[in-house]
């Protein structure tokens, strides 16, 4: 199972990449494996506000639908439109071309990030 060392993780199987005041979010290799073939994705609108641990996107397989939670409170600054047309990217490259969205957060919201899991902690979780 691929768990990149440089990323942070949530208990709900999202990965987070922090760059300045931006957090890019996707689902982990473990999650894509559990979900099986992704057939459809619903992404939030750009500039929409999101709240930590609240649903921000939906990933659907043939027999299930999964809410994807924002790991941080803030505003959506970018979404990966490529996965809308090619949802298989989430299965093929969950940490790269299969990312979902980017959240821009403010200084005060920054401390929410300390609750995120390290790669090591996430490995223990799964």
């Amino acid at each position: 199972m691929n768990i990149p060392e440089d990323l942070k993780f949530t208990k709900t199987h999202e990965w987070v990449k922090i760059e300045g005041n931006k957090a890019t979010v996707g689902i982990t290799d473990f999650a894509q494996h559990e979900i099986t073939d992704v057939v459809h994705v619903e992404l939030p609108e750009i500039s929409k506000g999101v709240i930590k641990a609240q649903p921000a996107a939906v990933i659907e397989s043939v027999k299930s639908a999964f809410d994807i939670y924002s790991p941080v409170t803030g505003k959506i600054s970018a979404v990966n439109e490529e996965v809308l047309g090619s949802p298989e990217l989430i299965n093929q490259d969950p940490y790269g071309k299969g990312f979902l969205f980017t959240v821009e957060f403010t200084e005060t919201e920054n401390n929410e990030l300390t609750a995120l899991l390290s790669a090591e902690d996430y490995k223990k979780l799964i």
């Binding site: 057939v39 459809h40 659907e60 397989s61 043939v62 027999k63 299930s64 639908a65």
Partner: peptide, 10 residues
């Protein structure tokens, strides 16, 4: 198809 819209899943 497109069944993840439906009540038995969603």
């Amino acid at each position: 198809t497109l069944q993840s819209r439906e009540q038995h899943i969603r």
